[in-house]
Structure formats: C-alpha cells, structure tokens
Design a binder for these strands. Structure first.
Ligand SMILES: [Mn+2]
Ligand SMILES: [Mn+2]
Ligand SMILES: [Zn+2]
Ligand SMILES: [Zn+2]
Lengths: 131, 131
DNA sequence: ATGATATTGAAAATGGTTTTCATAACCATA
DNA sequence: TATGGTTATGAAAACCATTTTCAATATCAT
C-alpha cells in the first residue's frame, strides 16, 4: 500500500536546499529549471499533491504569506517549535518551543471549558542583518 | 477631503452585532438580508473596499481562516488579547492575554538577535457546546 | 448650476489551488 | 512474462475568494 511517489524525493531535495519557506509554484519552477536536459519535470498538480502529502506526513511546516499563499518548508525537527520571520528580508528562523506556552494553554483550557486545545504562535521581527 | 463612504457605518454595525470573525461575503449576505424592504444593499465590491479601508484605519482586526479566507472583526482597541476558535462551530471567544508570553518574547528576542518582535498567538479547540 | 473629486455596482479578470479524467507507472501474483 | 488491480501523473478545466475595470452616481465647494 505505501508506495512512494517518485517525485517526493525531488521535492524534498528542493526544499532542503535552503531555509526559506517556498510556495508550491516556486518549488515547481525550480524543478522545471533543474530538469533542463534530463527528462520532464513533474507537473504543477503533482507538486501540489506531493506537498499536501508531505505536510500530512509531518515532514513539512506551512505558513501563510501575508497575501494568503501557502508556503512550505522542510521541518527540521520533529519537536514542536516556532517560526520567527524577518519582516524585511523574509528569512525564517526556527525557535525552540516556548515552554511558557504549555502553562498558558492549561490555564486557558481550564478557564474556557474548551477541549483539545491547539495553537499557533508565529513570531516576526527584524533580523540582525537587516537592522 | 475625508469624505465618509456611506456604507462604512452599516458594515461596522454588522460586525458589532456579535463577537465572531466574519468573511467579507458573510458580511455582505447579512447586509443583503437586512435590506429586504429598504433600498438596495451595497455591492460585494463595496463591502470588500470598505473592509480594506476599515482595516487600514485600525478599526478592524483580521485573521485568516484555516482555508485561507480573510476574516474581519471589530477591534477592541485597548487591551491585547487572543482568540480561541472552536474547530467545529467556528465561534470565537476572547481570551485575556497570556502574561507568560511577554517573558517568552523577551527570551526569544535575546537569543535570536531579532528586534521589534511581534507575534500572533491563535488558539483553537472544541467549545463546551460542541463536545 | 458647474465642475472637480470620491464612491459605487456590475461584470470581467486574476491567480492560487483543486478537481477531473484519461493515461501511465507500479506491484503482486500466477 | 502476462494479467489485473491499485496508485500516481499530466493537461486542462473548474473553483472561488478577491481585485480590477470602467461607466454611472453621488458628494461637495464654489
Ligand atoms: Mn519549522
Ligand atoms: Mn479580538
Ligand atoms: Zn532580515
Ligand atoms: Zn463549537
């Protein structure tokens, strides 16, 4: 059953090349460029499908760009962590999970009566190089 | 110069009616329903334009729904707070700011070298009524 | 009124993403 | 190697929230 689509490796390699979040279309363009000479690159649909699959399997993180595009990035660690994006150059840095959050979560869960609490904690700032 | 578009008040009133984030199209539908009998409701374009303007002026908060839609809500200007959305029914509850966050922010800022740190902390869960 | 400026509605365009569906690749089995 | 069932793929079309266009209105100062 668990057959491995033959393009997943390619896509993971593209995402592994640097530390920036990329849109599906950016990934696709890289694949198209890279396949000059070699055979045909995977189609855009295939890249979309592969990215979905990889997210589902926990191999990729996603964030949304300010204009609503979905961006993908190889997930370094399997531990939970946050993303700190530079507002000027767009580079993203991983930040270890803030352990303060679990306390806050517990407290909020208790006070609100909500169950199955989950959260997103996205950080932005200006990186040293840009300031 | 600062003419006031005649529909801004209407839209603000719709958003003021309850505490949920709403998409532009939801706001528009409310306006359409509400204008049965009275004159024509503003067009969808006008609602989009008004919401942009109100966000620009700082009167509205926005978040993105999981599927990428932009949602709007009247901004409680004063104190910072978080949003706890029910994954099943979509209702949003305000949660007082987690004071743990400021400590985490300071620590992360120091460790990363980033300046001007800002963050979003969005919560989701299952509300009492849905569980 | 006159004209300058800002707003509006209707329809079309945009653009990222998803769906469709026919075809190809894959894999187990005989 | 043939056979058949299952999954992956490409190309094009569909989707759908949002934006843009542009002609028609409304608004306001003079
Ligand atoms: Mn990550
Ligand atoms: Mn709020
Ligand atoms: Zn930077
Ligand atoms: Zn609920």
């Amino acid at each position: 059953m668990a057959r491995t689509p033959r393009n997943d490796a390619l896509i993971l390699e593209v995402l592994g090349r640097n530390r920036r979040f990329r849109s599906c279309q950016e990934v696709h363009i890289v694949l198209v460029r890279r396949s000059s000479g070699q055979g045909k690159p995977p189609s855009l649909s295939t890249v979309y499908r592969a990215l979905h699959r990889l997210v589902r399997e926990g191999l990729l993180d996603t964030i949304r760009s300010p204009d609503g595009e979905l961006l993908y990035r190889l997930c370094r660690t399997s531990d939970r962590h946050h993303h700190l994006m530079c507002r000027l150059c767009g580079r993203v840095e991983d930040v270890p999970q803030a352990e303060e959050l679990s306390a806050a979560l517990d407290r909020i869960g208790g006070a609100s009566g909500f169950g199955g609490l989950d959260y997103t904690f996205e950080l932005s700032g200006v990186c040293p190089r840009c300031s």
